[in-house]
């Protein structure tokens, strides 16, 4: 199975980090192959940033995602730029508090930013909430691999917060999202 995942949101949400963590979980802790790349403009913050990761059980030659089959969308601008054209066969996770539009393909609403703020008091970890939901929805990497990749990637002192964010994403998903 080959997963081609596209993350999009506004700069500063940790869109690129999300893809890096997912790729790391697959390549370092789950015995799979992963390549991660990003498209970015001149803005350091704001804008519609995107990042992609390909995860496969076979070596990956072509490094760019041509047709994502998984989308994680965390802003309306990101939806319009990268998500609106998603094919019907794809699955999309949307941060339901921030994305107003809905795609034609199957989608799951995850109120990640709202829940991160309400439950954890830190909206900044919304991207990790989305990752928890993504992994639980797809099983593309094991939850344990994801935990290890998150611990590798987040600043010292925020490990517990981020693991709680990951678990929160899983819990939201298991309750069927916001649908």
């Amino acid at each position: 199975m080959k997963y081609e995942v596209l993350f999009s949101g506004f700069g500063g949400q940790g869109i690129i980090l999300s893809a890096v963590i997912l790729g790391r979980a697959a390549a370092m802790y789950d015995g799979k192959y992963a390549v991660q790349s990003q498209s970015y403009g001149p803005e350091a913050r704001g804008g519609a940033s995107s990042s992609t990761v390909i995860i496969s059980s076979d070596p990956i030659q072509y490094p760019k995602v041509l047709q994502p089959n998984l989308y994680v969308i965390m802003s309306e601008a990101g939806f319009l730029k990268f998500g609106a054209a998603a094919p019907e066969s794809a699955l999309m996770l949307v941060d339901s508090g921030l994305v107003q539009s809905r795609p034609r393909c199957r989608f799951i609403e995850i109120p990640a930013t709202m829940q991160a703020k309400e439950v954890l008091g830190k909206p900044i970890v919304a991207n990790i909430v989305m990752l928890g939901a993504l992994v639980s929805a797809t099983g593309m990497v094991s939850f344990e691999a994801m935990e290890r990749a998150v611990l590798d990637s987040v600043p010292k002192g925020t490990e517990e917060l981020n693991i709680r964010a990951l678990n929160l994403g899983r819990d939201i998903l298991q309750k069927g999202g916001d649908a």
């Binding site: 890096v20 390549a27 390549v35 991660q36 790349s37 990003q38 990956i60 490094p63």
Partner: peptide, 9 residues
């Protein structure tokens, strides 16, 4: 830029 910013094992 593609290979410079690519992440893989």
């Amino acid at each position: 830029e593609i290979i410079g910013h690519l992440r893989e094992r």
